[in-house]
Amino acid sequence: MSIQHFRVALIPFFAAFCLPVFAHPETLVKVKDAEDQLGARVGYIELDLNSGKILESFRPEERFPMMSTFKVLLCGAVLSRVDAGQEQLGRRIHYSQNDLVEYSPVTEKHLTDGMTVRELCSAAITMSDNTAANLLLTTIGGPKELTAFLHNMGDHVTRLDRWEPELNEAIPNDERDTTMPAAMATTLRKLLTGELLTLASRQQLIDWMEADKVAGPLLRSALPAGWFIADKSGAGERGSRGIIAALGPDGKPSRIVVIYTTGSQATMDERNRQIAEIGASLIKHW
């Protein structure tokens, strides 16, 4: 067993022997301040990774656009098919120029040779490549099948209805392509620590998230040296922004954090800054 596999296998073990965790309302004060600064709703939840206990939450059962955070769930569904012998990570998928959609920095470079399922998941999570996500959605049967996968996990809230990039439209009061912070946090925890996926697939999923290259201005910008984070960000229309993450000190994750916002007129930089400040408060009061 590799060191990384050992780390993920012992996530519940280490967490069980940690000192009790206590909620700190100071972080919620910052979440509410972010709402004021952005002029928009902000949803927040913080779960203990081992027990699933909610440590703090704000608007945990209000719907927010998922945006690209759905790509972690998508690759979880792909990995479940791999575990069941219905898919192979090494299978190569070929596609054409007509398949390319807006923001496809990886797939646009491989029109000639195609990409493997493993490479597509890596591109979808680490670079948020939209064509990679659409190609992977095709392998599982489309958005409705991802929703069905989530329902089978016990998540009857999260739903995907459309493809990239239309799913980022974020129309107010439109339930399409949305989740709730509580539902997303619980589902992410199941994917990373539950028995739904094999140990190898859980490790692969967290490795992809740990290698995320496009979430630097968010929670990662607030992390002290030595902290662990595996995350996936999302951005959408109407001032929408979000991030889902597993993080913790001492090089291992111990909490799940989900943050979503929508309806702001603020710039992307300002949305990023507010999420980073929430992260800084979380870490300060850990």
Rank of each mutant, 00 (worst) to 15 (best):
P25L: 08
P25F: 03
E26C: 14
L38T: 09
G43N: 06
E46W: 09
L47Y: 01
N50V: 07
S51L: 12
E56C: 00
E56L: 06
E56G: 09
E61K: 13
E62G: 14
R63I: 11
F64N: 08
F64R: 11
P65M: 15
P65H: 08
M67L: 08
S68V: 03
L74F: 10
V78P: 10
S80R: 13
R81Y: 03
V82C: 06
G85F: 09
E87T: 14
G90M: 02
G90K: 04
I93D: 15
S96D: 04
Q97D: 12
D99R: 14
Y103N: 00
Y103Q: 01
E108T: 06
E108Y: 10
K109Q: 12
K109P: 11
K109V: 12
H110M: 01
D113M: 13
G114M: 15
G114A: 03
T116C: 00
V117P: 02
R118L: 14
M127Y: 01
S128H: 03
D129I: 15
D129T: 09
T131Q: 15
T131H: 14
A133V: 01
A133S: 03
L135E: 09
L136T: 05
L136H: 00
T138A: 11
G142A: 12
P143R: 07
P143D: 01
E145R: 08
V157A: 06
V157E: 00
E164M: 02
E166F: 06
L167M: 14
I171N: 01
N173C: 08
E175F: 00
R176L: 00
T178R: 08
P181Y: 14
P181R: 10
A182K: 15
M184C: 07
M184S: 05
T187E: 01
R189D: 03
L191S: 08
L197C: 01
L199K: 00
Q203D: 15
Q204H: 06
L205R: 05
I206T: 12
D207N: 12
D212F: 00
A215D: 15
A215F: 15
A215N: 02
A215K: 10
L223V: 05
L223M: 10
W227T: 03
F228A: 10
F228H: 12
I229N: 02
I229D: 07
I229G: 02
A230K: 00
S233Q: 12
S233R: 03
S233P: 05
R238D: 04
G239A: 09
I244C: 11
I244R: 08
A245L: 10
A245H: 02
P249D: 08
P253E: 12
R255N: 06
Y260E: 03
A266E: 03
A266V: 15
N272P: 11
I275N: 09
I275F: 04
I275W: 08
I275V: 13
A276E: 10
E277K: 13
I278S: 15
S281I: 13
H285D: 03
W286T: 08
